[in-house]
Amino acid sequence: MGVALFAKMTLAASIAAGTSFANEIGDAEAGEKVFSQCKGCHQLGAGAKDRIGPHLNGIFGRRAAAHEGFRYSKSMQRAGNDGLTWTAKTLDAYIENPRALVSKTRMSFRGMKDATDRANLLAYLRNFSDNPSNLPEAEPTATATDHDLDPAILALKGDPEYGEYLSNECLTCHQSDGSAVGIPSITQWPEEDFVVAMHAYKRKIRPHPVMQMMAGRLNDDEIAALAAYFKDLE
């Protein structure tokens, strides 16, 4: 779904005052069916408990990894500490490709490519958040799926020699031997995970000022080159 369509829907919703909130971002009823993909791990509604994943009541507006008593992955905790908060935009990105937003997340869900399915799912989830009407009005339009990476970007073949030079800049913080003290390891990743993570920083979907800045000035070829270089670094 494109930006234009979203804008139209928001406009329509604000004209027809009193329409159900969910109309602004998608069709909650259709979303209930989509939620069957999550149900195996997440519960929702009255009496929902933590299962493989945390229950998802009240997820809108909550910090990532903030549900007490649930054991999150290190990556998710780090994202929460960095300030990742679940909004329509970040949820959409996470559901689309969990590893783009939270690289080493424990959620083994391969992602949902269909933007309409995601919008419907979000509308459904939103009904279980305490106070949806307090959510920022601008939010729905912000869910435009501009973070969907062009497959051509993922198909780019990186030049490892250029990657080696570019990596110099990373190695002031990330260690070449893959050890991780306070800063995560970035060696020997699948190239795709690396590329989607870097693009998520570049587009500022993923929080973290240092990495947003570092990724912000790398172009698509440079990101591919870095992915190719770090993949094989022992």
Partner: peptide, 10 residues
């Protein structure tokens, strides 16, 4: 904690 990582890195 990041700064500790940076110290080890640099």
């Amino acid at each position: 904690e990041e700064s500790e990582g940076w110290y080890a890195g640099i």
